[in-house]
Design a binder for these strands. Sequence first.
DNA 1: GCCAACGTTGGC
DNA 2: GCCAACGTTGGC
Length: 826
Amino acid sequence: METEEVSAEVPTEPTNEVKEANTQESKESTANTDIQDYVTEKNKEGGVTETEGEPSKDIDKPPCDWLEPLEEDCDDVDSQSFDGEVESLVGSERSGSVVSIRKTAGQRSGRGVGRPRKRTQFEADEGWEDCPSLGEGWKRKLVFRRSGTSEGRSDTYYMSPRGHKVRSRVELVKHVKQSVDLTNFNFKTGQFIGEGLHWRKRRKLDSLQANSSVPSLTDAGPAAGSPASSTSLSLGTVPMSSSYSIQKDTGPETNTALPSTTTYPIDDLIEDSAHSNPPPVGSSVSAAPVRTINGASGEPQNMFCVCEKCHKTYTFEEGQTMCQNCRPEGNTSLAIIRRRKPYKKRFPCGRCRACRNTVDCGKCVSCKNGLLRLRLNKNSRKVVKCRKRKCLHPKRRDRVVKTSEWQFSNMAESLSTASNISQPTVSDDFEESQSSYLQYSDSEDLSVFFGGNDGDGGLDEMGVPKVRRRSCGKCKGCVLRTDCGSCDFCMDKPKFGGSNKKRQKCRLRQCQREAMKHLLPMDEEMLFSQGWVPRRRPRYTYGHNRNRSKKLSYLNFGVPANKAEAYVPKASSGVAQVVNRDRLLHPNFNGKMSPQLHTGRVEMIKENGFQDSGISSRALLSVRPDVLPMAIPINYAGTSLREGNRPQGSAGQEPYQEEQQEDVSCPSITQIFSMADSDPMIQGIDSNHELMPLLTSLRSIVLPVLWFCVVVDGPRLQLIQCSKRSTMADTTIHIEPSFHYHISIQGQPLLPTHRLYDSHPSRLTTTKEIVALLEDLERYWVCQGLGNKNSRKGSEAVFPERAATCDFLVFSETECCEKCKALRRV
DNA sequence: GCCAACGTTGGC
DNA sequence: GCCAACGTTGGC
């Protein structure tokens, strides 16, 4: 049977690509041969054997309702791996890419290979090929994903002549907009339209809203199985067993599944049906569901579909997925559409008059039909929704979630009196009906802060996908709209020059309330009200840990052992503990704990400086042992818990150490407040030295982020910004015994004429004055000097060329000081 | 136990 | 299509 391809005209896809592709057919016969070779191999790898004229075995599989949430097998097995193959052919490295894929597939089969850790394919130097379309020096690279459901898919990267790696079209535009117009540039292929063959982009069906079609091996049609069709391009895609496949029929009705068909999202069909006139050929929008691409006139021809049940072809009828023989009664297009649009499903608001109505009217069409149905079949369980009870203000899922968040936010304000929290008001009817989602959503959101469930795979017990619940929307982190740009998660972001591996939210913007649930409930509010916030969002544990209790399943929101410093964000207003990896491994910690366990534990921030050590001690006791804030000891010089920091109300209780040791199942920290007694940095200063009280005070408070006080020869105190990611990196405040001070930046003194000195006393005698100075310093950053050639790159230290009278410190919104600016103009 | 890596989803 | 970032997995 001769089969011709049907254009999968999807909105936004220019059909001139299609035409162009046809004109290029003969030129690309070699490419098609390559495709055939590769697809044949892919088929073998995938265990799929498909011969010309024979139906794919996949076709015989139960239909995959592609308007339902897809199971992975529905599209992954074929489409995703094949997708990468097509992309490889699209690019300039046609043959090479195919080979690379094969290698990848082979590697994949081996156990223990796994994805690269230390160096990703993107980072690897090999595989880059010249991309002359963008200009000299530009390189392009295809990276094939090698794991999970995206295995075989490819990402396209570019590297500028300067070595900057570009991961998206947007980034690319930023780089070349001065010199190259990318309007007609195909990011995937690395070519401009008109340069060569342009395959129609494949698009994944990851969302029904995306109006995408599902590629499959059968999509390889011309390349994979049919030499006869090698002269045509498969531009459409087909799900393995589409319920809505359409093809141009060139032969008699047959029970043979065609090697290539084209599918259309139902939504497209709905929209298409609304158009009376098809768009002109070449327009980017398809107004009708079926168009031939090779009909000379461009006029639609008779279209046929494959019945999803018997796989016979039948004349296309809008909204129908089966032939007339298989079509059940009442199988109207609208019925299908309504049933298969889960992502647009709306939920009753639960508040309107209709929702509150608990009694069926008995008069509306729905009620009458329901009664009739009951008469005909008393066992019928079909729920009939009285039209008088149909929600007047249905909400989309996300709106429902927001509602619940709003409810929580208001409730959260009265956290201290948890008994005041009222349950969401929903009508009985609402609860009884299918609309329990709202209630679920509310309770689920509340559970975030009151010991809710976790780690159950993204679905609740009712099969409803969980919403993302890591944001209360009210806390300081949630309210913050700008990334700090300096935490590790920010540094990972492409916009900050990162490689997008971590893909996590800025640490400063992570929900504080969400994290607080990892503390003992009785103290959550107290800790939070006192400004304690975990530094890192909690981890969920799955897999072999999934049987652990929910509480214990949260094990860590600390910092990796080797990145403790980097994890502390810049925060002008925040006050944080200093984290020092080595000090966290102080022998005073329980010897049973591994270094990794130690440093991977919790780090806490105190948002506001505090003097009341009792608060902090109480907080410490409140934290579960396995989430103890490791940074605390550093700031508690010479003040052990037993010596006076016993929490309020704890008189008569067992000593802290013993209390901790009771819990043998969790790591414990003993004598945590005594470690500073042996601090070698303190040993260098006489206990009667005038700086000692100030040092002790500084150690007993929480300094701004990564400022740390040390004693140096003199003796004198130095407050050092320890984070090299801070704008104040390598900045030191030197406090002399006379309490006079000066500031140095990168070893250079900040001139006494600097404005910073004006707003602070000439002597720093109290912690308050010091903290004020530190916080003031955080408003500045280091002058970038004369040029930007050495401007900030990641976390590297910057030593730009400067004016002799450089101010060194300029407000962070200013690039350089006036002196350097003047020199720049010269 | 831990986390880097990345698939995935939803917003825009 | 891009982006942010949540959720999960597999290797160490």
